[in-house]
Design a protein around this nucleic acid. Structure first.
Lengths: 347, 347
DNA sequence: TTGAAAGCGTTACCAG
DNA sequence: CTGGTAACGCTTTCAA
């Protein structure tokens, strides 16, 4: 077992050294059963444990108990700063219940997701929390659940999937973003979209369109949705959009996440357009760097830590069989910084 | 075992359904032993496996085999964008050997590190790769190794620890950073330092001092080392430094990592100092956002993916008993962008 | 309060 | 080529 030769201490070694039966050691070390054994015996055992440096083998114990106390957490891209606070939230929620997260990223690749889920099944994780779901993955996730692994959706939710979900209202978020631009006086507004088969991006588009429609406006210009929400894609699509708009560029952009927005800012500079003087930008997520771009990003905050925490709790609940009590939807919130300002008079 | 009631399929179920002994099933599924069994039997078994949706229980198999094929990866802060590519590198290296990384972050807290290492021991990870080591953690890591878990150090190395390490030359990196500033013509150079008990930061300081000394200069101004390398600390320390310098601020800053640099840029703006016109900045790591700050950061690149990959390979080697062949040190590289320029004439 | 024995799901060894 | 048996490290039931 040990990587470098030293023989690992087992419960039997402890039993022998303490002159008791292994079952006594087991009980002495189990918080639920310590009270069944004599104070003196227990102390002797604890001493020996200390002395020998015994570490209970969770794998073995789990095998016997039929549990692993492990929950798989599958994110699309660890490089997306959104997921650091998310994962911290999950970890906190699992800590409390003595579960451990097993984190992997799919690199937004379906085949990798398939392999990862299979692997997690073989490791007998008791639940999978995923923020990597695209629409085409629904069947896969439902099979996983049918095979006995709890599944919890967060961030990238799939409505109507019937799977336990941490809800958050991206339609509202999209509306907030565009309403802010409208209030500033913008009339020529475009969007830089994330992938269409990812629900939050679709929802943000929908919210944006609602707000535009309510103001009697339509989206200006056209950029196809990004295939993945990355800086490079944001830059590319913004350049495309600007090219397509020719001499009548939009005065404002709703960019559907912070990574895309970083690319958008870069593209604007590249085309000699100042932000926010020439083009305003509102983005989404409020990742840590949003406050430090130039100009600082006005953005809709997605409370990633809180969502992670809720997802962790939800997963634990389900694993422990206390289903139900749905999680309250966390509300998006507009964070006003410098990247969106009123349009110039001549615009 | 299963979270939601469905009985889990075991190897016995497969054996029964295929009319063979469990050991036959085991062999049929083991790549090293399939050739020992009849083609026909094997096919029958495979069919049944398919039909029943059998997933081998890695925990059980590992218990018997005395291995977990798991390697703990301990980073200080998942929020530091440096670690996304690092972790991807590790994952790639482990994939190849069918190991799985078990990732945790210490939040740069010693007690958390202690708890995490204990937990990883109980999970019988076969090695621990850590980038979270501070100097005071050396004994802890050596105990871990003595108890039979391989330990690999990366990024935050500990020279003279005798532990397997992925080396990288931060003294050189620090020198490169300051030499660049000197070549641009700067003479009044200050540093914003990371924590002193973290080797890379100390090395960067040393390199910087070497470069200054070679030019017959000394560091200007004073800021105590940050307690942790975060944006907030970078901002705070830069403000302190500027305050301490009064009317003779440095014309250039070597800021020891990108997160600190984000804070430093913010502090400069806050004090009405333009970068690079009034104060140049060279930073370290080249995290993904460095190219997108305003101005874009001139920085020394730490090849995080490569280091992660090397760390993963090294860990696997050690676990598999093929010790030795030390890893080549990866060289730091100056990435010139916009945040460092020649000082103004009157400076 | 403690001991004995069985078993969790798997693989390794020994027979045949 | 296949079957039986024991064992990995632990917990749990049953008895004492």
């Amino acid at each position: 077992m040990a990587g470098n030769g030293r023989p690992t201490v087992t419960i039997r070694d402890v039993a022998r050294a303490a002159n008791v039966h292994v079952s006594t050691v087991s009980r002495a070390l189990d918080p639920d059963k310590q009270r069944l054994i004599a104070e003196a015996t227990r102390n002797r055992i604890l001493e020996v444990v200390q002395e020998l440096g015994y570490r209970p083998h969770r794998g073995a114990s789990g095998l016997r108990r039929g549990q692993t106390r492990t929950i798989g957490v599958v994110v699309p891209d660890l490089g997306n700063p959104l997921y650091a606070p998310f994962l911290r939230g999950v970890a906190r929620a699992l800590d409390a219940a003595e579960f451990m997260p097993l984190v992997t990223d799919t690199e937004d690749d379906h085949d990798r997701l398939v392999r990862i889920l299979r692997h997690l099944e073989e490791r007998r994780v008791e639940a999978v929390i995923t923020t990597a779901a695209r629409e085409g993955d629904l069947a896969l996730l439902q099979e996983l659940r049918a095979a006995g692994t709890e599944v919890v959706l967060a961030v990238r939710t799939l409505s109507e999937s019937g799977l336990p979900t941490v809800p958050h209202d991206d339609v509202l978020g999209g509306r907030l973003a565009v309403e802010h631009l409208l209030e500033l006086g913008h009339r020529r507004i475009a969007q830089i979209r994330g992938p269409l088969d990812v629900e939050p991006f679709r929802a943000r588009s929908e919210g944006a369109e609602q707000a535009l429609a309510a103001a009697g406006l339509a989206e200006v210009g056209f950029a196809p949705p990004a295939t993945s929400p990355t800086v490079a894609e944001g830059e590319r699509h913004t350049l495309e959009l600007l090219a397509a708009c020719g001499d009548a560029p939009p005065t404002a952009l709703f960019v559907q996440n912070d990574l895309l927005a970083l690319g958008a800012l870069s593209a604007l500079r590249c085309r000699g357009l100042r932000c926010p003087e020439d083009v305003s930008v509102v983005s989404y997520n409020d990742a840590f760097f949003s406050a430090y771009t130039q100009p600082a990003l006005t953005t809709v905050r997605l409370p990633a830590y809180e969502i992670g925490f809720a997802a962790g709790r939800l997963a634990v609940r389900h694993v422990e069989g206390q289903d139900a009590d749905p999680v309250a939807s966390v509300a998006p919130q507009l964070v006003v910084r410098a990247s969106a300002a009123p349009p110039r008079d001549d615009a």
